[in-house]
């Protein structure tokens, strides 16, 4: 193989590697974009359920999610938690512990009003 041919083969290999990297990057970005598009579509579909949610929520005690139905007082934490005298049981893990590493969004605090 001549020097020119060797250089040519080397350049092709380099271009192939660079192309591979660019393709991988494009695929990664495309996957992330697909997530954003899919999430937006699911949000739009969920927004169509809003009248149904409003109608049912109107007859419910709270808008709390039915996630802790077996956990005694915690079914409706927004109504019950402020005055809960005890947790689920002695030495049980607190499902809603006081304190956390992740603070709520600042906008929530900004909108906070002092409880009368």
């Amino acid at each position: 193989m001549t020097d020119a041919a060797a250089h040519g083969a080397f350049d092709v290999a380099l271009r192939r590697r660079a192309g591979l990297a660019v393709v991988a990057f494009v695929v990664a970005v495309a996957l992330l974009a697909a997530i954003v598009v899919d999430a937006r579509a699911k949000r739009a579909a969920r927004a169509l359920d809003q009248p149904v949610i409003d109608a049912v929520a109107h007859v419910l005690p709270t808008s709390d999610l039915a996630l802790s139905g077996g956990a005694r007082w915690l079914r409706a934490p927004s109504l019950e938690e402020p005055g809960a005298a005890f947790q689920d049981g002695p030495a049980l893990p607190d499902p809603d512990p006081a304190g956390g590493i992740m603070a709520p969004p600042r906008a929530v605090w900004a909108a906070e009003v002092t409880r009368p």
């Binding site: 709270t62 927004s78 512990p97 304190g99 956390g100 992740m102 969004p105 605090w109 909108a111």
Partner: peptide
């Protein structure tokens, strides 16, 4: 105030 309660509940978890 419920918005704050929800933010706290799920943020803490």
């Amino acid at each position: 105030l419920l918005g704050r309660v929800y933010a706290l509940a799920y943020g803490r978890r």
